[in-house]
Design a protein around this nucleic acid. Structure first.
Length: 120
RNA sequence: CAAGCAGGCCGGGUAGCCGCUCCGAUGUUUUCACACCGGAGAGGAAAGUCCGAACUCCGCCAGGCAGGGUGCUGGGUAACGCCCAGGAGGGGUGACCCUACGGAAAGUGCAACAGAAACAUACCGCCCCUCGCGAGAGGAGCAAGGGUGAAAUGGUGAGGUAAGAGCUCACCGGCGGAAGGGUGACCUUCCGGCCGUGCAAACCCCACCCGGAGCAAGACCUAAUAGGGGGAAAUGGUAUGCCUGGACCGUCCCCGGGUUGGUCGCAUGACCCCGAUGGCAACAUCGGGGCAAGAUGGAUGGCUACCGCCCCGUGAAAGCGGGGUACAGAAUUCGGCUUAUAGGCCUGCUUGGUAU
RNA sequence: CGGGGUGUAGCGCAGCCUGGUAGCGCACCUGAAUGGGGUUCAGGUGGUCGUCGGUUCAAAUCCGACCACCCCGA
């Protein structure tokens, strides 16, 4: 994932936390907020409660890879917040969870619906 | 063959598709960047942060006192609480392993409860003498036996005695002295007399070492705001305990305001590999060769297929089916220690069994 | 990444420096007082002292290692 598509400042995270809409699953919490950039940026929050450094790295990489595969509408800031049960979730299950949550948020491209159904 | 001891090593592989960070070349572009090609990209512990250093800043000024650390001896090292070799003590049939292992006649303190006594003692007792018909009472001696305790004034045996005791003797242990060996810890031999304990991971004494903070250290650049208001104090302040001397001058607190960007530090180093020489070894010296991650909301990845390895079931075997493939993720960099770790390999040695 | 602190009864804490008895408040249980409840009074239950080793006759306390949680830092 390219660097300019990532949230890199604490202020950006706090803005999404404060005024973004939330969509939740038992393994994942997603907060989204529209921006005016014409591009969609995403950030990841995996706290120390999730596990040791190896586990946190693994979770973040799975999330990033799934974001890369999904086709998202432009112009949104998205923060993915991991919950404890995400440790037992594999790549494909996590992909279906993410596509479901983002479709509810209304920022998944219609073309990608098919791919999301396939992943299920 | 089985059980074990010591040392060293590895810690999945190949291919395809899609990605990430850095470096280099080319092209487009005013720059920022973008496209494409090539190269590099987690560990033995990267971990815990328990020690030691490099490096950086702080007033590392001088002296002294506190305070902290280490603790058998000798060596290695930049340094260490690490490593090597040796000594002593302890454990194991053995290979071998373990040990914070200086000082208790420098001083202070503690040893609860129990017990007569925990620095000097006699509770139950033992023996002798006197009185008494006797039970017993008084006097003198003893510390062997019993009892209490974690610990009771060297141990075993013999002699000796009224009963006993290092009272005497032999051996052992401890202490002191002498001689010899060893750089030293210490060892061996001889002589002397018979001397109460434990705790220094209690204070302490002795020997040696230590200024403090840490890469969010620190340096530079760009942008922006302000050169402000109030108070304390001159026996004040100048970075980390205290005192003395010396040096310097504004210092400290509160309110208000601004920045929470970029670059460097940052990877050629007490570096790695091979060989030779010196040394029992740790290690050192010399020669040759090599360059091996560098992120900053933090890269080093995701998926698929096949193979390898281990376990279980089935089977004569081949094979088949199922499951597993650990601990763990660089953040200034090194030297150690400690802790976690599926499975596997190599070398030497010990004990027991069997065969020749 | 670096620095520091704390783990003791259900909860909040003391005891640790200077080693031998684990204590205080709230809560809980029983009884008294009230027609009943609260308040009050009396009595009582309850703790592997975070875990594992070491020193010591003896460890919550001294020493070492490990685990968990919390705080601070341009």
């Amino acid at each position: 994932m390219a660097k300019q598509l990532a949230l890199t400042r604490r202020a950006q995270y706090l803005a999404v936390y404060g005024s973004g809409k939330a969509f939740a699953d038992s393994a994942l919490l997603v907060k989204v907020m529209p921006n005016r950039l014409g591009a969609t940026r995403s950030g990841f929050s995996i706290s120390k409660q999730i596990g040791k450094a190896t586990v946190r790295n693994r979770v973040k990489r799975l999330l990033k890879e799934n974001v890369r595969q999904l086709e998202l509408k432009a112009g949104w800031d998205i923060v993915f917040i991991a919950r404890r049960s995400i440790v037992e979730t594999d790549y494909h299950t996590l992909g279906s969870i993410m596509s479901r949550l983002l479709r509810r948020a209304g920022i998944l491209e219609q073309d990608a619906k098919k791919a999301g159904a396939e992943a299920n």
